[in-house]
Design a protein around this nucleic acid. Structure first.
Length: 350
DNA sequence: TCTATTTGACCGTT
DNA sequence: AACGGTCAAATAGA
């Protein structure tokens, strides 16, 4: 499992590294008239500091163990499957691997995904990861059954990420996806073994270096500078939420905008961050999503706008390695974090 | 033949 | 006991 002090430590390092990178770029921008670019880098620096401080606060609040002392590496397996002594000795508690019989909470967060008509309303099938369905259950009071998925590479890479997909009763094109556990697998590694990079992805690389795309990024930066996320509700929950990152996303959301996830790129920028929308590379329109962390690496999605009022801005559209265009519309204002995320690690890390 | 999905049974939690 | 989550054998599809 990537959860643990190693994970926090890596996240912190990556946040600070990103902040430093943006500071450097800001310094470079100061010598020019790139006001928008300067503003963008300032935003990113502030975000990195906020996230870093949140990590430190959170880590310090849940444990008295010094941050830089890493625990024994956990397997990531859900510990509820492990039975232990009914009355563990004190030493067992001091061991990070101690497991109580109570079911442990995995880091959990959920998204609501609206499926576009062009998908035939078949449901959200691809979020950039490879999932295997292992169950379906009729849920009391729910009109539609709940589907259970786990990472395809559970056995191969001991990745214990799972997700549940529940269709909304009221809105059949709306799916609530609950993710449990973060991916510890390297799916790019697997896809590199099993299948060659798709032509669409290669094409995307070319487009990313296209001056037209660079210009689009300027528009993106401008857009970001003028949009904000309403975090009022998140702030209210802060007393009970041990979420390690600042709820003030570094990204932007316009409640009227819907984006489509269409791409997961091979380029992984170091550092997980749930910062919702975070352009990470100047030469392409990449974003990170909170549901897509990968073992210390940032999972990058390319989003493109589903409407036509922002032409060209998100047009670098390709397929993922496993499917053509995913075609899921994410009403971003509906994305939420479970207040239990990332969970009480004083329990989980035992 | 291999891989993914389906589905009834089983198990843990409440 | 009811419910939700997972397992694993059977089945389907490539």
């Amino acid at each position: 499992m990537d959860c643990g002090f190693n994970w926090e430590y890596n996240s912190l390092i990556n946040e600070l590294t990103q902040g430093m990178e943006h500071a450097k770029q800001l310094r470079a921008s100061c010598s020019s008239d790139k006001i928008q670019e300067m503003h963008f880098h300032m935003q990113m620096i502030l975000s990195s500091f906020e996230n870093s401080l949140s990590i430190l606060k959170w880590t310090g609040s849940v444990t008295q163990t010094p941050l830089l002392i890493a625990p024994p590496v956990s397997t990531g397996a859900p510990e509820s499957s492990i039975s232990v002594d009914e009355n563990p000795k004190i030493d067992d508690h001091q061991d990070f691997r101690y497991v109580s019989k109570k079911r442990k909470q995995m880091p959990t967060w959920s998204e609501q995904v609206r499926v576009s008509a062009e998908n035939g309303f078949e449901g959200p099938t691809d979020d950039g990861y490879s999932w295997r369905k292992y169950g379906q259950k009729d849920i009391l009071g729910a009109k539609y059954p709940r589907s259970y998925y786990r990472c395809t590479y559970r056995a191969m890479q001991n990745c214990w990420a799972t997700k549940q997909v529940q269709r909304s009763d009221d809105d059949p094109v709306l799916f609530e996806i609950t993710y449990k556990g973060s991916h510890t697998c390297n799916q790019d590694f697997n896809s590199a073994i099993t299948k060659p990079k798709s032509p669409e992805k290669r094409e995307f690389k070319k487009q990313a270096n296209n001056p037209r795309m660079i210009q689009s990024n300027q528009m993106l930066a401008n857009l970001q500078a003028n949009l904000r996320v309403n975090t009022n509700e998140l702030d209210k929950n802060e007393t009970t939420c041990s979420f390690p990152f600042s709820p003030t996303f570094s990204g932007f959301v316009d409640e009227n905008l819907h984006f489509q996830i269409s791409q997961v790129d091979d380029n992984l920028v170091g550092g997980y961050s749930p910062s919702f929308v975070s352009p990470t590379t100047p030469e392409s329109n990449y974003f990170s999503l909170p549901s897509c962390q990968m073992n210390g690496s940032r999972r990058i999605h390319n989003l493109h706008h589903s409407e036509s009022d922002l032409p060209d801005l998100f047009s670098a559209n390709t397929s993922s390695t496993s499917s053509p265009i995913i075609g899921l519309e994410f009403p971003l204002e509906h994305v939420k974090f479970d207040p239990n995320f990332p969970f009480d690690n004083s329990e989980f890390f035992r």
